[in-house]
Amino acid sequence: MGTGAPEARRRKEEALAGLFETHYERIVRYVAARVGRSGEAEDLASQVFVRAVEALDSYEERGLPMQAWLFRIAHNLVVDFLRRGAHRQTAPIDELLVAGAGGPEETVALHLQVETVAAAMEQLTPAQRDVLALRALGGLTSEQAGKVLGKSAGAVREMQSNALKSLRRLLEGGEKR
């Protein structure tokens, strides 16, 4: 190990700990939008950082920022999770609501809103859900989302456009019901 290695290692660890502070919530939301259950989302999000620590030595930026790398780990964990228990793919995501609400009226309103959005999201294709979750909940750029998904930024933009058009139709349909 050269003299620069401990310093590089220290920098990576600090960067990861920094991203935990700024991105943990985003990763929980991304995962929750994919797996549908908040408890499992929290557990998976926590695992994302543990996996990242384990793989930190192999991480080199090379065009993939660390936050995108974390989402790639999250994406892989989600794919594995869904593969292990496909029945959970359609689980409701309205459990996310639990913590955030204030008074009873606010809780009911928020619950309805979450239910509507969750129902619409569940009707999107997995790829569309993935793109919207990475962009709108994970806060990644389309370039970064493309790196996570192994697609070009242009393909992500196209998929995102189609996903939003579908989501809009589904939300309008849900509200009319």
Partner: peptide, 11 residues
């Protein structure tokens, strides 16, 4: 709407 609904504060 989607972003707001699916981004509540965490416990």
């Amino acid at each position: 709407q989607m972003q707001r609904a699916l981004s509540p504060p965490l416990p």
